[in-house]
Design a protein around this nucleic acid. Structure first.
Lengths: 146, 146
DNA sequence: AGCAATTTGGTACTTTAGTACTACGGATTT
DNA sequence: AAATCCGTAGTACTAAAGTACCAAATTGCT
């Protein structure tokens, strides 16, 4: 968390510096508007890539912090998910289910119909070999996929 | 894949339009350089986020170390239980609920009728301030009482 | 281009969960 | 002794969950 704040601080600082440099050069007529915008675009594009990359790293494994009795651990065992044959969407629904949401609430959060959620839920049950959602959550926790 | 191309095409189109609008307005002095750059920065930042998100979706397989994850935490916070006003029986039912059992199954295991379990479950919901059993389990885990 | 898997959505149905009461015996407290 | 809490159980109802199908559009892969 601290590194994220520091990182962002540095990024903002760099951008402010670049900004000033660009402004000065632009006012002198050395640089065109297009170039300034393009540089900003490229920098932020990669900033976006980097930020998302960092976020994904946490979910991909890397026991950065030892188990502090974490509740919904960010450590997700993707190998296990693959082994079970769970799809991206199904896993997404499973996580929402573990958060205690109803089918209707999950549908609203994912901008889907309740029917779709029910379909996903049923498929999850088959793949996890369970009969109820509470059981599914229990198994999912045991397998480290939520 | 096609949607990505279409999306990028639209994005580029929008950017070109915005670009021209910005240029015109900028030349007229209506808009400041900062605003133009900021808009470009924000758009590309989210574009970066989106692109990485799509990319990550494909790489689901990760040979991460399966974290055994001590599920059945034997550490139960009795002070918390008391604070919530949960009785022994209610806590007992709550534990069974967290194990993914149905009301019927809990009734069978505790040699009670399903009606009794329903009564307990309803009282648990009131005390935990939740609406569904999955939510109750989630809250119970957070509070360390299961 | 074509096939398999994924995602989304639907209908119709059964089952389980949950709500809102009531009631009663036993234990504990006042 | 009266009041209160706990545990038990019931009825009658509504809401949600779950099952079993089907179907169509997308996407991934070859």
């Amino acid at each position: 968390m601290r590194s994220v704040i520091i990182g962002f601080g540095l990024l903002i600082l760099c951008l402010l510096v670049l900004f000033k440099i660009a402004e000065v050069n632009f006012m002198r007529g050395d640089v065109k508007l297009e170039v300034v915008v393009a540089v900003a675009a490229i920098v932020f594009f990669f900033a976006g890539l980097y930020v998302n990359g960092q976020r994904q790293k946490k979910e991909t494994g890397t026991p950065a912090t030892p188990p502090p009795a974490a509740l919904h651990s960010p450590i997700v065992d993707y190998a296990q998910i693959k082994k079970l044959g769970l799809t991206q969407r199904e896993h997404e629904v499973l996580v929402k289910m573990a958060e205690g949401l109803s089918n209707q609430e999950i549908a609203a959060q994912l901008f889907l119909s309740e029917s779709t959620i029910k379909t996903h839920v049923s498929n999850i049950f088959i793949k996890l070999d369970v009969k109820r959602r509470t059981q599914a959550v229990q198994v999912a926790r045991e397998l480290g996929i939520v």
